[in-house]
Amino acid sequence: MNASRARMIWSVVTWTIVLAVVFPLIWMIVTSVKPQSELFSIPPTLMPETITFEHYRRLLTDTPFLQYFRNSMILAVTTTVVVVVLGTLGAYSLVRFKYRGRETLATLVLFTYLMPSVVLVIPLYLMMAKLGLANTLASLVIAYTTFALPYALWLLRSFMSSIPVDLESAALVDGAGRMGAFVDVVLPQALPGIVSTALFTFILCWNEYLFALVLVNSDSVRPLTAGTMNMLITSFNIDWSLLMAASVMMSLPLIVIFTFLQGTLTKGFGAGAVKG
């Protein structure tokens, strides 16, 4: 059949490219389980001859990796919770209420959403020093809010505006006040959007590097990104297996979230990010 042959050809072409795209990630995993001796063999072995989890063990016991992981988790979760709570209320207000300055506010949100962190990092650095928050997790939560809040507001706004207004009108007529309608009808409807936004925000915070680089300088508060990079920079001999193991571990939460988000990715996120 002609159609099935075309399908075969497209499949082979597409999958070749897909595998090429994900090859660096495959290589990351392969490297992380290769024994040190095999790492520098020439030519490199594509599949490791022996699989070892030695690097993972060293990562967890000999390095502050677990501390970094804990810091990143606290940071990302705290920021996400704060930002999603504020953003849900704020986005609802922007979408469904009329008051002076609303349009200006929405534009301002967009502007800050597109604002480079590097512009804010200097004044924030000074601000943290003044507030006595220098080198604390709190300073990073505050700093992360600067990009996470506009981002969450922007996503939530597009999720919320897709909820039919009639539902709220019906709730009002049925005896609810504005807040009652919000709790009874809007929140349950917006829940998938809120969850997606929370997950995206989490990813954003989890991956952040610049603020982590500038605002903290001790291992007790350093998140994963800055911490792992510090391992690279401060080590005398670059230990690639260890770094690849760290990379894999660092990506684990993302893989979990990613599988969870698959559906939204092709629909919601595209719409949210572009339509605004």
Binding site: V18, V21, V22, P24, L25, W27, M28, I203, W206, N207, Y209, L224, T225, T228, M229, L232, L243, M244, A246, S247, M250, S251, L254, I257, F258, T259, Q262, L265
Partner: peptide, 17 residues
């Protein structure tokens, strides 16, 4: 899904790899 993965990876991981 596989193709989308690099976008969600931390830049730190991407750079190390």
């Amino acid at each position: 899904s596989l193709v989308l993965f690099p976008y969600f990876l931390s830049t730190v991981v991407a750079v190390l790899v």
